[in-house]
Amino acid sequence: MLNPRAPSPFLLLGDHAGNRIPRLLADLGLDEKERTRHIAVDIGIGALGTALSSRLDATFIHQTYSRLVIDCNRRPGAPDSIPAVSDGTAVPANSGLDQAGAAARAAAIHAPYQAAIGSDIERRLAAGQQTILIALHSFTPSMRGFDRPWQVGILHDAGDSRFARAMLAFFDRDAELTAGDNEPYSMDTIDYTIPFHAYERRLPYAEIEVRQDLLADADGVAAWCDRIEQALRYALVEYPTL
């Protein structure tokens, strides 16, 4: 957790912000190139979340373990929570993993991460602190031969989606951007973190997807920190009227 007990209404989340692998798993049987690809980590999100945390004086709760160890934005036990193959790459340590092994990873990594989010939300609500969940993700410029035209996407579904829609409206006004509405992915029953924490509590939220090549260096991270800060501040004013 970065910047705990910060005063901002925004609680920043990074489900796939790191690529650490427990030593006992021996790098999952993958070389360094694979361990730094998008299959292992949301490229640029650790740096972007850190920058936004400082800019907004906001807490950033982020997972430092690789999504290939266990995906913290999936329900434990879901078929793709511990993938044996990801974007064409076989993950040897995940192949044939038994139920006990999967449960051990969930208990060691998934559960503490989600518990930290839930605990901070409850603390904030008890203190009367406005709380808006902002999940930060990044996506590849192309997938399976399709060049994705979006620079940014806003994901939303059930619960109180007004904040997400206000952010989308902000990005839609920018002629330099192609913003995706539930693109390049839809928020649906596959996603876990936002639905689990925001829907029942009726908390405002947005899941932000930024194209990874735009976060490839410090200048890119700084530029998107600026853009997202502007979008968040705009939506904070506009979403109650939607």
Results as ranks from 00 to 15, higher is better:
1 M>A: 05
2 L>Y: 01
4 P>H: 06
6 A>D: 04
10 F>S: 01
10 F>W: 03
12 L>G: 00
13 L>T: 08
14 G>N: 06
18 G>H: 06
21 I>K: 08
23 R>P: 03
23 R>C: 03
23 R>N: 12
24 L>D: 07
25 L>R: 03
30 L>Y: 05
36 T>A: 05
38 H>L: 10
39 I>R: 04
40 A>M: 03
42 D>C: 05
46 G>R: 09
46 G>K: 04
47 A>S: 09
49 G>N: 13
49 G>L: 10
52 L>Y: 02
55 R>P: 01
57 D>N: 12
58 A>V: 05
61 I>V: 08
64 T>Q: 08
67 R>H: 12
69 V>N: 10
71 D>N: 13
74 R>V: 03
75 R>E: 09
76 P>I: 02
76 P>K: 05
77 G>A: 06
77 G>F: 06
77 G>P: 00
78 A>P: 10
78 A>C: 09
78 A>E: 14
84 A>I: 00
84 A>Q: 12
86 S>F: 06
88 G>T: 08
92 P>T: 06
93 A>M: 08
93 A>H: 11
95 S>V: 09
98 D>P: 04
100 A>H: 13
101 G>H: 07
103 A>W: 05
103 A>E: 10
107 A>R: 08
108 A>F: 01
109 I>V: 14
112 P>G: 00
112 P>S: 06
112 P>E: 11
113 Y>P: 09
116 A>V: 09
117 I>G: 10
118 G>Q: 15
123 R>I: 13
127 A>Y: 08
129 Q>L: 14
129 Q>M: 14
131 T>S: 13
132 I>D: 11
135 A>E: 10
138 S>A: 12
138 S>D: 12
139 F>Q: 09
139 F>N: 10
143 M>A: 10
144 R>V: 12
148 R>W: 02
148 R>G: 02
149 P>K: 13
152 V>N: 07
153 G>S: 15
153 G>I: 02
157 D>E: 15
157 D>N: 15
158 A>I: 11
160 D>K: 15
162 R>L: 01
163 F>T: 03
164 A>D: 02
164 A>N: 04
167 M>N: 01
170 F>R: 03
170 F>T: 04
171 F>Y: 10
174 D>E: 14
174 D>G: 03
175 A>W: 06
178 T>P: 01
182 N>F: 05
184 P>Y: 09
185 Y>A: 06
186 S>M: 10
187 M>I: 07
187 M>L: 09
188 D>W: 08
190 I>A: 12
191 D>Y: 05
192 Y>R: 04
196 F>D: 02
200 E>K: 12
200 E>L: 05
201 R>L: 01
203 L>H: 00
205 Y>M: 10
206 A>V: 10
211 R>G: 00
213 D>L: 04
214 L>F: 12
215 L>D: 07
215 L>Q: 08
216 A>K: 07
218 A>V: 08
219 D>V: 00
220 G>H: 13
220 G>L: 11
220 G>T: 14
224 W>N: 12
225 C>L: 05
230 Q>K: 14
231 A>N: 08
238 E>H: 03
238 E>M: 05
239 Y>Q: 03
240 P>I: 07
240 P>K: 03
